[in-house]
Write a protein that binds this DNA or RNA. Sequence first.
DNA 1: CATACTGTTAATTGTTTAGTGAACGCGCGC
DNA 2: GCGCGCGTTCACTAAACAATTAACAGTATG
Lengths: 125, 125
Amino acid sequence: MSKRKPDRSFGHVLREARVAKGFSLRKFAQMIGVSPTYLSQVEQENVDPPTADRVQTMAELLGENVDEWTALAGRLTEDLPDIIRSSPTEVPDLLRAVRGLTPEQLRTLTAQAEQLQKQGKSREK
Amino acid sequence: MSKRKPDRSFGHVLREARVAKGFSLRKFAQMIGVSPTYLSQVEQENVDPPTADRVQTMAELLGENVDEWTALAGRLTEDLPDIIRSSPTEVPDLLRAVRGLTPEQLRTLTAQAEQLQKQGKSREK
DNA sequence: CATACTGTTAATTGTTTAGTGAACGCGCGC
DNA sequence: GCGCGCGTTCACTAAACAATTAACAGTATG
């Protein structure tokens, strides 16, 4: 037993997705603009995952979810830090308050945020 | 006119706060464990702000808000990326949904998140 | 067997980051 | 005018990061 390690690590998932699409290592390396060597290392996890923007183009080329892959890579998409800093105390507080919520609960909260957006349009104070 | 530039930049705010507390540059540098040289550079903004954890100890020693200072420094506190990655698609979605909300609205949402936390305690599924 | 792919390994590289140390000029007290 | 504490400037660096080049082994095709 213990042969089937699901391995949701970035390198492993990347290799699976690349092979599933029928791209050779050299070809895909060229598509994303890195050396075949580097891509090999990344897939084997001998080196850290690439930068957030390269992870993004990889995910896009392979039709995968960018946020998910970015998280797997241990990175953050570029827009998030800016959102956090736009309300430097309130957004961190919110994030700490949502820690541990289920995906469903998070979606509920997202829906409520969208409601608030609409409210903000009409009545100003 | 245009003499009073509020200057909410990290270096400027740091210097104000340090001087207000009556610490000399050399003394405060020693308190936080950096060279006086470096602290001087930081306050003048000749170099980038320090790492998130050093910003944190600075803010704490000066009695200032850590999240606010971290944002000023263009950094993120260490706990936030982990929270985001704990639900890699839902939390980014939430963040994008709250972009542009007022601080009051954000606090409302935080309160709702806390409600959800309580709900989660009792009824599972 | 030549060649044309596949992926892999080792060594090295350029850049950025986060700082340091030595020396400098200024004013203050004596 | 000597020492002392103040902040500043210049030159430099150790470590990390993101990646590269060159050379290699295996497999399959003609």
